[in-house]
Design a protein around this nucleic acid. Sequence first.
DNA 1: GTTGATTGTCCATCACGCAT
DNA 2: ATGCGTGATGGACAATCAAC
Length: 267
Amino acid sequence: MLIGNIEQFKHLSQFTTLKDFNNHIEMWLAEYKSHFTKSELIALKRLIRFSAKVYGVSTASINTILKATEKDGVGISESTFHRMKRKAIKIGILTVHYTTRKNGSQSSNVWVFNRFTNDTPIDSVQEQKSQSNQAKNDDVNEIANDTPNKTGNHIKTINLNNKRYDGSEAEFTSSRVPKQFVNLVKCFYNKADTIEELWKVVKCATSKLNYTVAEVTSIATDCFRRLIRLVKKGRIKKSIYACFWGIVNKKLDELYFEELYELDFAM
DNA sequence: GTTGATTGTCCATCACGCAT
DNA sequence: ATGCGTGATGGACAATCAAC
């Protein structure tokens, strides 16, 4: 299969229709347009146009995209494209799957647009630094292997910590997380890793305390409701996890003082 | 005119194939 | 053996532009 054959990467698409893709792009831009400069937006929009055939996926090389912007009469430099790419990855709009040929040399990227979510973990999406490091990465997700392209090369993609696109919907949440907590959280955050991360906060905060699983679950759900109230008020500026950590610890303090008070009262 | 943000150019690097 | 091509990465630095 040709490396440029976009059909090969159809399974990476997270959108059902072009309209669906456009809607999510609109939402991303409405939220994060201000993070990009004028030229960066040109680069992003050109890449979006290249991602229409397979909704939200493109295999266009950077050079192709740059040439296309030139044809549009608004040429931008490669550096600007890279700056846009870094920002888009950091925000979570975009995931880049790097491809290599069978011989190990680098080939063009596969650009995958993500669905819009409110819990975009700005700091959690890390960009891969170098191709040489990728080769050492154990998390190699081979696709279309043994499918030579026109030059006789094989291609494989290397998954760069891609937690956004790995099918991690709520139903894939670890069984260690109580169903009651999953059912509540998934109404707001439908990603398994988000749910597990929130549960990890609770487990960490209560690890040295003698609470039963039922009690911890009750604390977790209560704290999560507080978290959502803050989210809706727009009071969370940075990370929901940091905020959740604060809420859980505050709740544990309250419980501790309640117990102390009850003990005092009983004496 | 100064300042800060934005943009573009240039360079080094990777890991291989291929031509000389 | 050497140099070039491919398609990517990132950083330094200079030029340009807009706001004050």
